[in-house]
């Protein structure tokens, strides 16, 4: 290709490819945008989304399986066991560390920790990123009643033992009736 032809080809190529590019962009100029106005309008989030955790506290048995599964040890839980019942002190998840890998969800024997669809997480204070997942602290009301009952039953048993009497276990239904009264 001699110099003149090259020169002309450069001019032609530059002009043509620019016009092709402008044609493509011009086509989109007239189309409706595909983005959404975020705070006013939100795209649907699928069910499997790995967002901020939530905990079904009543089911949880403080087995620490999730905390062990966590690669960065960001889950900490603390509960006091009263017989079968649990008195919750804390169940914190440090979202400064958490990388939303969902490895904590699968080992759970009671299927009680889940990842929700909430993702927005803004704070002026870093300490607020340490979330407490508990919905209530201490014990649930029913659990407390069950615990008191069990303790009372134990006391009665012991008292009866002390009295030397052999008392058969009371049926469950009676205990429930007493609790309700």
């Amino acid at each position: 290709m001699n110099a003149t032809a090259k020169y002309a080809k450069n001019v032609w190529d530059g002009l043509k490819s620019s016009l092709v590019g402008m044609q493509i962009t011009g086509k989109y100029l007239l189309q409706k945008p595909i983005t959404v106005q975020y705070p006013l309008e939100r795209l649907p989030i699928p069910n499997r989304y790995r967002g901020i955790h939530y905990l079904e506290q009543e089911k949880c048995i403080n087995c620490l399986a999730c905390a062990r599964a966590c690669p960065i040890d960001c889950i900490e839980m603390d509960a006091v066991r009263h017989g079968k019942e649990l008195e919750w002190v804390s169940f914190t998840l440090d979202y400064q560390k958490c990388m939303f890998c969902e490895l904590c969800v699968y080992p759970c024997p009671k299927d009680c920790i889940h990842m929700g669809t909430e993702f927005a997480f803004v704070s002026y204070d870093r300490s607020e990123f340490k979330h407490d997942l508990l919905s209530f602290k201490g014990m649930a009301r029913e659990a407390k009643i069950r615990m008191l009952e069990a303790e009372e039953k134990k006391k009665r048993k012991e008292a009866a033992k002390a009295a030397g009497q052999e008392v058969a276990d009371e049926p469950e239904s009676d205990a429930d009736a007493e609790a309700e009264s």
Binding site: Q31, P33, I34
Partner: peptide, 13 residues
């Protein structure tokens, strides 16, 4: 606005 609409966005709204 032109940039936004060319790029399938809204631009300032």
């Amino acid at each position: 606005k032109v940039a936004g609409h060319i790029q399938c966005r809204y631009g300032p709204m």
